[in-house]
């Protein structure tokens, strides 16, 4: 009697599974490159904690050199992901991509003391951010960007501590104002119980930390309470909400 199962079909499945494994391996090695450059930038930007504020622009310029490498890595990655299959492999690069978003966000903050705009982020990586909620070809998802922003709040709370140590008493105040603005932005999001939500919950501790620094400085009269808004470098229409 003839076979009840078409074994040729299993061979075909085996072949397509092998193809998929190859695609994954290729993506992984591209992501590894991205990750390496991420670490290079992190190393450069880490020095901001031990540098005076005059040195910061030089650090940013140095970091920006690496971002062209990141563009190359991402464009390599772009070629590896088949159309419509972005989310199939998304898990492979999501982490490093969040880190890259964070680094771009941090660089931009150090340069201009404001949040990076989506267009600036797109310019950093030469990839679009997915505002359509429909990724046909490679894009940065909004979630990845927001993860990067959450990482920024964490880094800035640390920067606030170290700025005081190196004698820059006005930076914590500006950081505090910026973080509160970010927090009120995040509060607008209706987050589900996902990883972004968990990390968002951590922002308030960063804010608390910065507020304690400001308190310490104010109590010791190292800064004048209610600092002059003229120091505000930021955008128009900013409302600081407690």
């Amino acid at each position: 009697m003839s076979s009840t199962v078409d074994l040729g079909f299993f061979d075909a499945i085996q072949a397509s599974m092998e193809n998929e494994a190859t695609t994954k391996d290729n993506i992984r090695s591209a992501v590894r490159e991205l990750d390496r450059t991420n670490r290079n930038i992190t190393a450069v930007l880490n020095r901001v904690h031990s540098s005076s504020k005059e040195q910061v622009p030089a650090l940013c310029a140095q970091a920006r050199i690496y971002f062209s490498d990141i563009q190359t890595h991402i464009s390599d990655l772009t070629k590896l992901v088949p159309t419509h299959q972005y989310y199939k492999y998304n898990g492979l690069w999501s982490g490093p991509m969040q880190q890259a978003c964070f680094l771009a966000t941090l660089t931009m903050y150090l340069e201009h003391e404001r949040l990076i705009t989506v267009e600036e982020l797109e310019a950093f990586f030469a990839v679009k951010v997915d505002l359509d909620n429909n990724i046909t070809d490679f894009q940065i998802s909004v979630e990845e960007f927001l993860h990067g922003v959450v990482s920024l709040t964490n880094e800035l709370s640390r920067l606030a501590v170290n700025a005081v140590t190196s004698g820059d008493f006005s930076r914590p105040v500006r950081i505090g104002r910026f973080l509160k603005e970010l927090y009120s932005g995040f509060q607008l999001l209706n987050l589900k119980n996902d990883s972004l939500r968990k990390r968002f919950d951590g922002i308030k501790y960063d804010i608390k930390k910065v507020e304690e620094i400001i308190y310490d400085l104010t109590v010791r009269k190292l800064i004048v309470a209610n600092t002059d808004p003229a120091q505000d470098t930021a955008r128009s229409g900013v409302e600081v909400q407690a």
Binding site: L115, T117, V118, E119, V129, D130, L131, N133, V142, E143, L146, E181, L182, S184, G185, F186, L188, L189, N190, L191, R235, S236, G237, V238, E239
Partner: peptide, 19 residues
């Protein structure tokens, strides 16, 4: 995209809708 970048709160409003 063309509406983004005006203020953080407005930007996050768009992000909220997307999410």
């Amino acid at each position: 995209r063309s509406n983004l970048g005006k203020s953080i709160v407005q930007d996050f409003g768009y992000f909220r809708d997307i999410l």
